[in-house]
Nucleic acid binder design. Structure first.
Lengths: 224, 224
DNA sequence: TCCCGGCGTCAAGGTCCCGTCAGGAAGGTT
DNA sequence: AACCTTCCTGACGGGACCTTGACGCCGGGA
């Protein structure tokens, strides 16, 4: 089950949250002020943090700022303030949701479920490897059989658009739009020319593409 | 920049949202009822959907249910209802956030930012699985018994129209209209030809279809 | 029994799409 | 100024795809 860190200095509310969350099947860790909150967050590896902005020692946004650089899970902010500026500030400081007090406990649980449903995103790999080649998306470098291959800017833009979604079909309109711009949506001929160049540079057998595949009438697909 | 689909039947609110979102740098696509909303969501690949629950044709939760099987981006629900039960129902139906009308535009934008900030890292595949095959609606890829099956654009358009509403009967007119266009409403022969091709490619026994079923005189149905 | 509408199958045209090659224009470098 | 890289554009052959027609099957109604 998921682990929730509750940061609140009001004993009554804190206790109510703990009981409700336990009943809903969560593990609960408590913190009554900002400093222990940061400590507990690092120690207990919670999946989600419920953070009350009204804390005795630190401002809630400071806790948020201390949390966000390294904590990747969702943070739900509780506050007695209903002013929009507070909400906007908290959300832009890294909060994923903002609930004003007093709140309905059932709604809070539903918002927790919605946040946790989104799951934990894994770190995406910036370099794509296949049997024959490696494509480094951040270094903008491609090697085929160990040798570095030079790509022109247009070739690279096209390739990276395909490689960013491995296995996914990308429509020709989307490719044209993101490589050449919205005005070139109909110039499908560009695609044919540059796909041919990419295949000549990357494919083991350019006549029968293994990685850069055509889906006639729809678009292209990179399959690792 | 991110693309937002706004589903709302109130022209004033819809216009206000469009202007505000455009000014904030988003691409905006509009839909005034549930059916065009589902269609536009499939067609335009928005990064996020703003969904008003009060629609003329479908209940908002039905739109949510039609969206969720394959749409992975965040959905923000707007509603005039402030009752907690409505919020809980919408959130558990797949919404990622719930904002009651009237709302502050700045807060809405902040909630949008929070949702998009989180949504970009994730890439869950919305696949429809049966015993024999998997249908990936985003990657536009179908596998039968582990082997990739190539579909032509028309075959794919027809299949996805059926698969997006699993178990539901889709009339021939609707199929013809959404695949070939409004001028082809009477060309039921096309349907027979392409359904046969789909069955030959997908069904274990094309003579006795298990997934793509005919409802004589009415339409077709995909049953998982 | 015969007729008829709806459905499934097959095959053949014709159109559109795709890959390839090559030549010329534009911009930057030596 | 000459050279190079890169991008755009046209022509052409081949293949994939869509359309269309013909035919057989089945069930319901005259």
């Amino acid at each position: 089950m998921s682990r929730v860190l509750v940061v609140d200095d009001d004993p009554q509310l804190s206790r109510a949250l703990r009981i409700t969350l336990r009943a809903a099947g969560y593990e609960v860790v408590n913190a009554a002020d900002g400093r222990t909150a940061l400590h507990e967050a690092a120690e207990e590896h919670p999946d989600l943090v419920i953070l009350d902005l009204g804390l005795p020692d630190l401002d809630g946004t400071e806790v948020l700022a201390g949390l966000r650089p390294w904590f990747t899970g969702p943070v739900l902010v509780l506050s007695a303030r209903v002013d929009s500026h507070d909400k906007i500030a908290a959300l832009d400081a890294g909060a994923d949701d903002y609930v004003s007090k007093p709140f309905d406990m059932g709604e809070l649980l539903a918002r927790l479920r919605a946040l946790l449903r989104r799951g934990l995103g894994e770190a995406d790999e910036p370099v794509v490897r296949t049997e024959h080649m490696t494509i480094d998306l951040v270094a903008k470098r491609v090697t085929v059989d160990g040798a570095v291959v030079r790509l022109t800017p247009t070739e690279w833009a096209l390739l990276s658009e395909l490689v960013r979604a491995p296995g996914r079909l990308i429509g020709q309109r989307q490719l044209l739009q993101s490589v050449w711009g919205p005005a070139y949506e109909k110039e499908t001929h560009y695609l044919r020319v540059y796909m041919a160049q990419l295949r000549r540079k990357l494919e083991p057998d350019p006549a029968r593409p293994r990685y850069l595949q055509t889906e006639p009438g729809m678009g292209y697909r990179f399959t690792p």
